[in-house]
């Protein structure tokens, strides 16, 4: 886990022209891991993680509040691929705990804390803004709270997680983040 040498200040809201549309809040620095392995490894890891990994593909499990001590997120973005997100200060400990717990089971745990940046998109038009560039059906019947998936926003791959009816979290590879945020800001003009 990287020690923060140069803190990246969280972007302050509102990033979009109008709070009545939606607003973007940058995630604080977070520790992230990709866990891939056998079901046995997953079960062992889930116990050590303090949060059972979601069994179903494209589903999220989480406890606690983002960035706050004890917060745990597990997103199943592939049949054998989990994106784990914890507070940055706990990254090293979580990594060690998971490796210890899963030592007997083949698996892969890789630190990708800096591969992504994350932000929350919240507001009455949050889903509409995403639908400006993402062809998924974001009606709650089709994309309920607790669903998460990799998808495309225009030409950028994102991980899209619905945390509430009007609250999404987006994880995106670092170099694509400015493009993604600029697209959302541009799309907001459609709701002026």
């Amino acid at each position: 886990m990287a020690k923060t040498l140069m803190a990246e200040p969280p972007k302050s809201k509102p990033r979009l022209p109008n709070d009545a549309i939606a607003w973007i809040t940058a995630a604080p620095p977070l520790a992230r891991f990709i866990f891939r392995g056998s079901p046995e490894a997953e079960a062992a890891a889930g116990s050590a993680y303090g949060l059972a990994f979601p069994k179903a593909l494209n589903r999220a499990a989480s406890i606690g509040e983002r960035g706050k001590p004890g917060a745990r997120v597990a997103l199943r973005i592939g049949p054998d691929e989990l994106l784990l997100i914890v507070p940055i200060a706990e990254g090293k400990a979580v990594q060690t705990a998971l490796e210890t717990a899963t030592a007997a089971h083949p698996h892969s745990l890789v630190d990708i804390s800096d591969r992504h940046t994350g932000f929350a998109l919240e507001g009455p038009h949050a889903a509409d803004l995403i639908n400006a560039g993402c062809p998924l059906d974001l009606d709650e019947r089709a994309f309920p709270v607790g669903m998460v998936t990799r998808t495309l926003l225009h030409k950028a791959e994102i991980v899209l997680w619905r945390m509430g009816p009007t609250l999404f979290r987006v994880e995106v590879w670092r170099s694509f983040a400015p493009y993604v945020e600029a697209l959302l800001e541009e799309a907001a003009h459609d709701f002026l």
């Binding site: 990709i34 891939r36 054998d80 890789v110 630190d111 990708i112 800096d114 591969r115 590879w173 170099s175």
Partner: peptide, 12 residues
């Protein structure tokens, strides 16, 4: 094969 890959292009 018991092996998994993860992209770390943007991690570093």
């Amino acid at each position: 094969l018991k092996v998994w890959q993860t992209s770390i292009t943007e991690q570093y």
